[in-house]
Design a protein around this nucleic acid. Structure first.
Length: 430
RNA sequence: GGAGGGAUGGCCGAGCGGUCGAAGGCGGCGGUCUUGAAAACCGUUAGCGGGGAAACUCGCUCCUGGGUUCGAAUCCCAGUCCCUCCGCCA
């Protein structure tokens, strides 16, 4: 949610900022501003009516104690009550519509974000490692995995349909090794607190992060009388951990990391990445979330991005860091870095992590505030999130970048302790 | 799934439908006493939104949402969460 004061006082800037996202929402803003003005007009009228009612109530109590007649006062009270009811219902109507509009507006891009229309306008900020050079024809992971007997798409489909896969043996173990390696790195060296949250979330939680009301189609909803969805990312539970709370500013920033499976219906992505593990309905991810005071959140954003990069560095995977342009950013983000890992099968860098600062956008929706010095007026915190990193895509990157001529796949050194010392996954008996 | 009990300020805990935003205690803060501290004593201490330069002032807030009433922490209905017992279960 955008700052309502900003909407009131600097409408033109907001309009210009949102336009760079290319969502095309000029008229929406006018309606929103009108509703806001209407709300603010009703409020003082309603409040003075309430005051009058309260006043009459006290006079009745006093009259009664003094044994005086109260009929006229009661009559006046009834009239006030009727007026209040009327104003309240009007306010309710206006407020409901205002909120509906407000929740559908995306975040304003930060000034340092390049203006652009699509992926093509993103800016590379740094690069690490170089794509491997093979002296044989490298194969894509959807051939390597099944050949090694560690990855099975047919059986995934048998269990749940298209875009589901099964990992077996060393494949399953590799996924678990990646999860444990990442969690150990972030908790042990980067200072994160590990969380194991519910894997389902309520409408309120998903509204807090910005997934609802606009993107319900991307979610799996639980059938029956449940107000629950499968989480599309651990960002949802981690950002809602402190929903409705007032934090102590002296304890900021706070850092959370969680491993969870993630579930996305990927509606609207038909035909994209149909082969392999790149785009699945279910995938594992280790997610980083930070709550920061506004004056440090941009430093925290850089730090969090570096924490995600460290995973790729230690895994020895070549990657580059991209600053997303205005047109390619997610709904809640004010600024986003994507980490893209080299995938030989695509002969391209593909997204493996996305690190965003949402500033107060989510905090305003979710009511997360802090008191700077532990006292005084609460302000909204800034929330940040980043994949640290996507497990499925990391597994893909390892299979493809570490493949050998004989069909085996070398295990990156940092993962071997998690693989009982296994140095490579061999074709024969894994 | 069945049967009960509960939700009040930072915490504990009172609260006949009418100056109740709420007794009392603890904790916190300020002070007296003391070389210093403790103890004791005195005072003070909820949040949110709006108006005002300020003193101050208006509204909302006793789990949430409805209802009854001139007036609800208090009465009625629905829901959420927590606890105990039974059943079931990893």
């Amino acid at each position: 949610m955008l700052d309502p004061t900003l909407l009131r006082t600097r409408l033109d800037e907001v309009r210009a900022g949102l336009a760079t996202r290319g969502d095309g929402l000029g008229g929406d803003l006018d309606r929103l501003v009108a509703l806001d003005a209407e709300r603010r007009a009703i409020l003082p009228v309603l409040e003075s009516a309430r005051h009058a009612r309260k006043d009459v109530g006290e006079r009745i109590a006093r009259a009664r104690r003094g044994g005086e007649p109260v009929e006229a006062l009661v009559k006046a009270g009834q009239e006030h009550a009727a007026a209040i009811k009327e104003h309240e219902s009007r306010l309710e109507t206006v407020e409901a519509e205002r909120r509906e509009w407000a929740l559908k507006l995306p975040n304003l891009p930060h000034a340092s974000v390049p203006v652009g229309r699509s992926e093509a306008d993103n800016v590379e900020v740094r690069r690490h490692g170089a794509p491997p050079e093979f002296d044989f024809a490298p194969r894509p992971h959807w051939e390597i995995g099944p050949a090694l007997g560690i990855l099975d798409f047919e059986r995934g489909a048998r269990l749940a349909g298209a875009r589901f896969a099964v990992l077996t043996g060393a494949g399953a173990r590799l996924a678990r090794a990646l999860i444990n390696f990442m969690l150990d790195l972030h908790t042990g060296e980067h200072g994160y607190t590990e969380v194991e949250p519910p894997f389902l979330a309520s409408t309120d939680a998903l509204t807090g992060t910005g997934n609802l009301p606009k993107f319900e189609d991307d979610l799996f909803k639980v059938a029956g009388e449940w107000d629950l969805y499968l989480i599309p990312t651990a960002e949802v539970p981690l950002c809602n951990l402190h929903r409705g709370e007032i934090l102590d500013g002296r304890e900021l920033p706070v850092w959370y990391v969680a491993y969870t499976p993630c579930f996305r219906s990927e509606a609207g992505s038909y035909g994209k990445d149909v082969r392999g593990l790149i785009r699945q309905h279910q995938f594992d991810k280790v997610e980083l979330v930070a709550y920061a005071a506004p004056d440090t959140s941009w430093d925290v954003h850089e730090a969090l991005t570096r924490h995600a990069e460290e995973v790729l560095k230690r895994l020895g995977l070549p990657y580059r860091t991209m600053l997303l342009c205005t047109g390619d950013m997610g709904f809640a983000a004010s600024k986003t870095y994507d980490l893209e890992v080299w995938l030989p099968s695509y002969e391209a860098y593909r997204e493996i992590s996305s690190c965003s600062n949402t500033e107060a956008f989510q905090a305003r929706r979710a009511g997360i505030r802090f008191r700077p010095d532990g006292r005084g007026k609460p302000e909204h915190v800034h929330t940040l999130n980043g994949s640290g990193v996507a497990v499925g895509r990391a597994l893909v990157a390892i299979l493809e970048n570490y493949q050998q001529r004989d069909g085996s796949v070398v295990i990156p050194a940092v993962l071997r302790p998690y693989m009982r010392g296994l140095e490579a996954i061999e074709p024969a008996g894994g």
